[in-house]
């Protein structure tokens, strides 16, 4: 049996203390296989975003462990952790987080810049990924001047720039109209099916969740087996 690309054991996360104490996660164990597409589905405040941040090693769990390809994330030092985030993971955020003052190309090559890739190669690889997302003609535009759908495609391009093996998406279609959302969804599933990228998406949209291989339903910080309650 192959080692899962990501697995967690009894993951907990607590915010605040005393009367403000809030248990965002209360013991989550899961395995995600290479090339899988997984939707984490839950209501607002269910802990789904927290789970994704812990999986992406952006946050440290209160208790429990995260294993990346069999390696315990706690055993990684700062430098290895940064290298792992940079080379293995790509992020697509609902709020885009684009730098509006600079060009589309500069936004897209940011992970390569952080990785220390030279200017010439950055340009080549940045243009290649923009080509893939049919944005090559916008490369010189300021990121602030794009439409919502274009911005989300730039964000996907940025996530793909350093050839990640896992793509995390937080409500990728949340800010888009349904037609544009559909196009973005198609791009994500194409990456999953034709490029072997593991896709992990947080959403509360059941129509979107239905297109994934697996759905993990989360409620009050715990995984639940069915979506009966959600359907209700």
């Amino acid at each position: 049996m192959p080692v899962p690309i990501l697995s967690t054991r009894d993951l907990t996360k607590t915010y605040g203390r005393g009367p403000d104490r809030f248990d965002a996660l209360r013991g989550v164990s899961l395995d995600i296989d290479r090339g899988d597409s997984v939707a984490i589905v839950g209501k607002s405040g269910s802990g789904k975003s927290t789970l994704m941040h812990l999986l992406a090693l952006l946050d440290t769990p209160g208790a429990g462990s995260v294993h990346v390809e069999g390696t315990d994330a706690r055993s990684l030092n700062g430098r290895r952790l940064n290298a792992l985030r940079n080379q293995m993971f790509g992020f697509v955020f609902q709020q885009f987080f684009l730098n509006h003052a600079t060009t589309v190309l500069d936004n897209v090559v940011l992970p390569l810049k952080i990785a220390g890739v030279g200017a010439r190669e950055r340009r080549t690889r940045g243009m290649a990924v923009l080509e893939q997302l049919e944005l090559a003609d916008k490369a010189r535009n300021k990121a602030g001047n794009l439409s919502g759908g274009q911005k989300q495609r730039v964000v996907i391009a940025r996530a793909l720039a350093n050839n990640p093996r896992v793509l995390f998406a937080d409500e990728p279609t949340g800010n888009l109209d349904s037609a544009t959302g559909r196009i973005v969804e198609d791009i994500l599933f194409d990456l999953n099916q034709n490029h072997g990228i593991t896709l992990i998406t947080v959403t509360h949209d059941h129509d979107l969740a239905a297109r994934f291989n697996r759905r993990l339903y989360i409620r009050d910080g715990q995984l639940i087996t069915t979506d009966e309650e959600h359907a209700a």
Partner: peptide
């Protein structure tokens, strides 16, 4: 703030 957060999420070290 958000740009710094983004860069750190993408693996930029605190030293950088």
């Amino acid at each position: 703030t958000r740009e710094i957060g983004l860069m750190k999420a993408m693996g930029m070290g605190s030293g950088s």
